[in-house]
Design a protein around this nucleic acid. Structure first.
Length: 854
RNA sequence: GCCCGCGUGGUGGAAUGGUAGACACAGAGGACUUAAAAUCCUUAGGCCGUAACUGGCCGUGCCGGUUCGAGUCCGGCCGCGGGUACCA
C-alpha cells in the first residue's frame, strides 16, 4: 500500500505551482486586489520556528483570499542593514555585505521548501543599492520639503573606545567591549520632523478599525498629547543672561504644592553656573553618566544639587523656592526645567525626602484619610478635594482642576496653556557603516549641501582603495575612509566631505511595503502600481513592533504622500494589523572559563527530570521561556522538522494548538503527532476507492461537511487558525467514522482537502488530484456552505438552578419562551429544588440556557 | 520607574457574560501481531461517595465587587512577557 510521502509530493506540487505561475502578482483591474504582508525578517543567518509561524499565518490568509476571488500580492524581502552584520565582521573578520548576502541565500533556501505562496520575483534586500538609492532620493525630497533637519542630541559615548554605542551595547551602564562607564554626549544629528504629524498620527488612530486595541493604546500613550501650562519663575538675584526659568507642567493645579525647581544638567543656566563653580561642574559631569534610555534614567538613583539660587513663586513673590540641578531632568523634554510637587509625584516625593524639602498637599481624597507617608497620585479623571487649590471648584476631577488652573494663570498673566506631545522628532543618524548613507556633503564654503539626484546612489564603499576595510577598530569606518569621504561639492564644485552618518534601519523598514508594489522601478514607487496595490490589506507581525516600526511607517507614508511617492489614499498604509505572539524557548546557560555566561543550543542539551545536561554531563542552568534570540542560542531550527516530516507537518504544527496572538513555548513533541494526523488524512483520500458505493449516513456526512466549511472559514477570517484546525480534526474524525457511500465521502474529502489547503497546501493538492478534483486546488474556488444544511432543528438547553447546571432538556430550536418555561417547571430536578414552591425568578435565554432562581 | 499585554487539567489550549476543560499532546488500559512498529478502540481536572450511576463538593494566579449567572466585566494585589525612542 502506498503511503503519505511528503518528500515526494512537496517538491512535485511546488513545481506545479511554479509552472502555472500561481503566485505571480500582476495588476488586474478586473479583480479586487488583496495585499498580505508579513513583517520582513532580519537576515540573521537561519530561519527559526518563529519565522515559520509568522509566514505560515500570512500564507493561510494569502491562499484563502486568493481562493475567494482576490488578486493577491504576497511578497518577501529582507531588512538587511543593521548592527549584527558589523558585529560579525568585528568578531570574525569578513565584510558585512558578504555576511548579509550569504545569510539571505541560506534563509531563502530554507524558506522555499515551506511552499509559501510568495511572489519571489519581487524579493529585495534593503541593502541592495537599488533599494537604498531610492531611499536616498526620497530623503532628498523630504529634505527639500522641510521634513528633515539637523540638531544636537545625546548619544551613549564610550570614553575608552571613543565611539557611539547603541543602547543594546550598554550593559549595566558600561560599554559592552571596553567595560568603561558610559557617558551621554551631544552630537549634531539628522532628524525627521515626525512631531509635525503628532496630531494627525494621534487622531488617525481612531480610524484604524482593524488594528488591535492594545497597539492603538500603546501608540496613543507614546504620542502622549497633554495640555499643560508653560510659565517662567523669576530668579532672585539673577546671574547674568538668566533672569527667569521657563518650565512646563501638566499639573498646574498643584502649583501651590511646589517646593523646588529642577533643571537639567544640560540646561543653559546649569552650564553657565558650571563654568564658574567647580562643584557644580563636577555634579553636571556626574549627571551625564549612564546610558540614554528612558529606563536607565528613570531607574537611576535620583540625585540633585542645590545651586544656591532661588526663584519667586508666581502667586506669592515672597515665597522663594530653591533651584536644583537634577539628573532625572532631560534637556530634550519640554523646557529642560520643572517645578517639583512632592505631595503628588512619587519621584518628587523621594527627592524632597532626600533633600529635606517641604511636602505640601494640594488635594486629598474625597473620602478617607490622606496618607502622608507617600505621594498621593490619583489619575486625572478621579475626583479629589482641593485643600490648597486656587481655581475651579473645591471638589473636582484632576482634569477640571488642570483646566481651571490654566485659565486662571492665563487670566493673571502667569504663562499660557500649551498642548504638548511626548513624541519626539525621529533621530535617524547612526555613526555606523552598514546602513544607507545620508546623501549630503559638508562644504566649507556652502555648508551642508544635498547631493544631486543624478549622483545617486551614494554607494557604500566595499573596500578601502583595494584594501579590506578593518571592522575590528571601534568607530565608523566611513570616517576613516579618505577616498570615499573626500568629494566635491555639488553646489560650488570645491572640495567637500561626505556625510559619514548612515540612516537608522527603521528608515529602511518604513517604506518597504510601498516598494513591494514596484520593487525594481527606477523611482521609489510607480504611481499606477502604488494606486492599485496599496494599502496593505493585512499586515502581520510581532507585537514588539507595536510602537516604533509601525509609527515610523505611518509617518513615512504621510511624508511619501507629501513628496509625491504615494497617493492620498495611502497616507495610512496598513488597513488591518495582526500581531502574532512570539515563539519562546528556554535558555540553557553555563558559566564559561572566563566567567562570562555561555549559551547552548537546545539540541546540545539533554533533559532529565526537569534538569538539563550537556553531553559531557555538565548541568546547565535553565532560564525558562524567553524570546528566541540568536545571541542566546535558544533558537529552534525548523529545517530538521521539515526534513523529517515535511513542510506541511511544520506548517500544520505551528498553526495548531496555540492562538496566533499568544506567545508559544516551543516543544518538539507535537510535530510527530501532527505528521501522524496528516498521514491519516492522506490515507482517507487514498483509500476512497475501497469504500462501497452505497452506505448509510450520507446526509449526516454532508451536513458535517457544510458545518466544517462554515466553521473553518470563520476561524480563518478571525485569525483563529488553531480553532480552524480543531474543527478540521473533528471533521476528519467524522469522515473516518462515517459509513456513508463513496460519493458522499468523496465530497467530504474534497471539502476537507480544500479547507486544509491554506494550511497544508501540498497535501491538499495531492488529495485533490487523487479525488478527481479539477485543476490545481490552489486555483479552485473556496467552498461556501449551503445555509439550509447548517440549520439545527433541536437544541439542548442546560438548566441551571441558582446558576449551577443541574440538568438539560432538548427542545425545538424556535420553541417560544413560554413553552420552554412550562417544560422547565415540569423538569424533575427543578421540581425537586422548588419543593412545591414557585421560583423567585425564571430566566430563559432562547437557544442558550435556562436559569431557575429558587 | 512608566506604558501595553498575559495567567484555565500532567502539557498546548477551547469557551458572543450562559453546560469550564472542545480539539490535541503526553499517560493508562485494551484490540490486532510470534514480537515490534504502524494502526484502531476505551479512558482521563481534583477530592469524596456509590453495587452502579442520571451522585455530592471544590476548581480558570490571589483578594474583593457587579450580576439570576463571571475564565470573561470592575477595583486591588502577585507573577511572567513585550516596549521604553541607537536590537530588529
Amino acid at each position: 500500500m502506498s503511503r503519505y510521502a511528503p518528500s515526494e509530493i512537496e517538491p512535485k506540487w511546488q513545481s506545479a505551482w511554479n509552472e502555472a505561475d500561481v503566485f505571480l502578482a500582476k495588476r488586474d483591474e478586473s479583480k479586487p486586489k488583496y495585499y498580505v504582508l508579513e513583517m520582513f525578517p532580519y537576515p540573521s543567518g537561519r530561519i527559526h520556528i518563529g519565522h515559520v509561524r509568522n509566514y505560515t499565518m500570512g500564507d493561510v490568509v494569502a491562499r484563502y483570499k486568493s481562493s475567494t476571488g482576490f488578486n493577491v500580492l504576497h511578497p518577501m524581502g529582507f531588512d538587511a542593514f543593521g548592527m549584527p552584520a558589523e558585529n560579525a565582521a568585528m568578531a570574525s573578520g569578513g565584510h558585512p555585505k558578504t555576511w548579509t548576502y550569504n545569510n539571505i541565500d541560506t534563509m531563502v533556501d530554507q524558506m522555499k521548501p515551506l511552499g509559501l505562496s510568495i511572489d519571489w520575483t519581487r524579493m529585495f534586500a534593503t541593502c541592495d543599492t537599488e533599494y537604498y538609492g531610492q531611499q536616498q532620493a526620497m530623503f532628498l525630497d523630504m529634505l527639500e520639503k522641510g521634513l528633515v533637519y539637523r540638531k544636537n542630541a545625546t548619544v551613549n559615548w564610550d570614553p575608552v573606545d571613543m565611539t557611539v554605542l547603541a543602547n543594546e551595547q550598554v550593559i549595566d551602564g558600561c560599554g559592552w567591549r571596553s567595560g568603561a562607564p558610559v557617558e551621554r554626549k551631544e552630537l549634531t544629528q539628522w532628524f525627521f520632523k515626525i512631531s509635525d504629524y503628532s496630531e494627525d498620527l494621534l487622531e488617525a488612530i481612531d480610524h484604524l478599525d482593524n488594528w488591535p486595541d492594545k497597539v492603538k493604546t500603546m501608540q496613543k500613550n507614546w504620542i502622549g498629547k497633554s495640555r499643560g501650562l508653560q510659565f517662567a519663575f523669576s530668579i532672585v538675584d539673577a546671574p547674568a543672561h538668566h533672569d527667569r526659568i521657563e518650565v512646563y507642567t501638566t499639573r498646574p493645579d498643584t502649583l501651590m504644592g511646589a517646593s523646588f525647581v529642577g533643571i537639567s544638567a544640560d540646561h543653559p543656566l546649569a552650564k553657565e553656573l558650571a563654568a564658574e563653580n567647580p562643584e557644580i561642574a563636577a555634579f553636571c559631569e556626574e549627571c551625564r553618566k549612564g546610558g540614554t534610555t528612558e529606563e536607565a534614567i528613570e531607574k537611576a538613583e535620583k540625585l540633585g544639587l542645590n545651586t544656591g539660587l532661588t526663584v519667586r513663586h508666581p502667586f506669592d513673590t515672597a515665597w522663594e523656592l530653591p533651584v536644583y540641578i537634577a539628573n532625572f531632568i532631560l534637556m530634550d523634554y519640554g523646557t529642560g526645567a520643572i517645578f517639583g510637587c512632592p505631595a503628588h509625584d512619587q519621584r518628587d516625593y523621594d527627592f524632597a525626602t532626600k533633600y529635606g524639602l517641604p511636602i505640601n498637599y494640594v488635594f486629598a481624597p474625597v473620602e478617607g484619610e490622606l496618607n502622608e507617608a507617600e505621594a498621593f497620585v490619583p489619575t486625572k479623571s478621579e475626583t479629589v478635594k482641593y485643600i490648597r487649590g486656587f481655581a475651579g471648584e473645591e471638589v473636582q476631577t484632576g482634569d477640571d482642576g488642570v483646566n481651571s488652573a490654566v485659565d486662571f494663570c492665563e487670566a493673571n498673566g502667569v504663562g499660557h496653556g500649551v498642548t504638548k506631545f511626548r513624541l519626539r522628532d525621529w533621530g535617524l543618524s547612526r555613526q555606523r557603516y552598514w546602513g544607507c548613507p545620508i546623501p549630503v556633503v559638508h562644504c566649507e564654503a556652502c555648508g551642508v549641501v544635498p547631493e544631486k539626484k543624478e549622483n545617486l546612489p551614494i554607494e557604500l564603499p566595499f573596500d578601502e582603495d583595494g584594501k579590506a576595510i578593518d571592522f575590528s577598530i571601534p568607530g565608523n569606518p566611513l570616517d576613516r575612509h579618505p577616498s570615499w569621504r573626500n568629494t566635491t561639492c555639488p553646489n560650488c564644485g570645491g572640495a567637500a566631505l561626505r556625510e559619514t552618518d548612515t540612516m537608522d534601519t527603521f528608515v529602511d523598514s518604513s517604506w518597504y511595503y510601498a516598494r513591494f508594489t514596484a520593487p525594481h522601478a527606477t523611482t521609489p514607487t510607480v504611481k499606477e502600481d502604488a494606486e492599485y496595490w496599496m494599502n496593505v490589506d493585512q499586515y502581520i507581525g510581532g507585537i514588539e513592533h507595536a510602537i516604533l516600526h509601525l509609527l515610523y511607517s505611518r509617518f513615512f507614508a504621510r511624508a511619501m504622500n507629501e513628496t509625491g511617492h504615494l497617493p492620498d489614499s495611502a497616507r495610512e498604509p496598513f488597513d488591518a494589523l495582526f500581531t502574532q505572539g512570539m515563539v519562546t524557548h528556554a535558555i540553557y546557560k553555563t558559566v564559561g572559563a572566563d566567567g562570562r555566561p555561555k549559551y547552548h543550543y537546545p539540541e546540545e542539551v539533554e533533559l532529565r527530570d526537569g534538569k538539563g545536561f550537556l553531553k559531557d554531563g555538565t548541568e546547565v542552568e535553565i532560564v525558562p521561556s524567553a524570546k528566541m534570540s540568536k545571541s542566546k542560542n535558544n533558537v529552534v531550527d525548523p529545517v530538521e522538522i521539515i526534513k523529517q516530516f515535511g513542510a506541511d507537518t511544520a506548517r500544520w504544527f505551528v498553526l495548531s494548538d496555540s492562538p496566533p496572538e499568544r506567545d508559544v513555548e516551543w516543544t518538539a513533541s507535537g510535530a510527530e503527532a501532527s505528521h501522524k494526523h496528516l498521514g491519516r488524512v492522506w490515507r482517507l483520500a487514498a483509500d476512497l476507492d475501497a469504500t462501497p458505493e452505497q452506505g448509510q449516513g450520507d446526509d449526516e456526512l454532508m451536513r458535517a461537511a457544510h458545518k466544517a466549511m462554515f466553521e473553518v472559514t470563520q476561524g480563518i477570517e478571525s485569525f483563529g487558525f488553531n480553532a480552524s484546525i480543531a474543527k478540521l480534526y473533528g471533521f476528519t474524525n467524522t469522515i473516518a467514522k462515517s459509513k456513508a457511500g463513496r460519493e458522499a465521502k468523496r465530497f467530504a474529502l474534497k471539502t476537507l482537502a480544500q479547507l486544509m489547503s491554506p494550511m497544508t497546501p501540498h497535501l491538499a493538492e495531492d488529495m485533490w488530484s487523487m479525488l478527481g478534483g479539477e485543476g490545481l486546488i490552489a486555483k479552485a474556488a473556496w467552498p461556501t456552505p449551503d445555509e439550509a444544511m447548517l440549520v439545527e432543528d433541536t437544541v439542548t438547553l442546560p438548566i441551571q438552578i441558582n446558576g449551577k447546571r443541574r440538568d438539560e432538556i432538548s427542545v425545538p430550536k424556535d420553541m417560544p419562551k413560554e413553552e420552554v418555561e412550562k417544560l422547565v417547571l415540569e423538569n424533575d430536578a427543578v421540581k425537586k429544588a422548588l419543593d412545591g414552591g414557585s421560583p423567585k425568578k425564571l430566566i430563559v435565554v432562547p437557544g442558550r440556557i435556562v436559569n431557575v432562581v429558587v
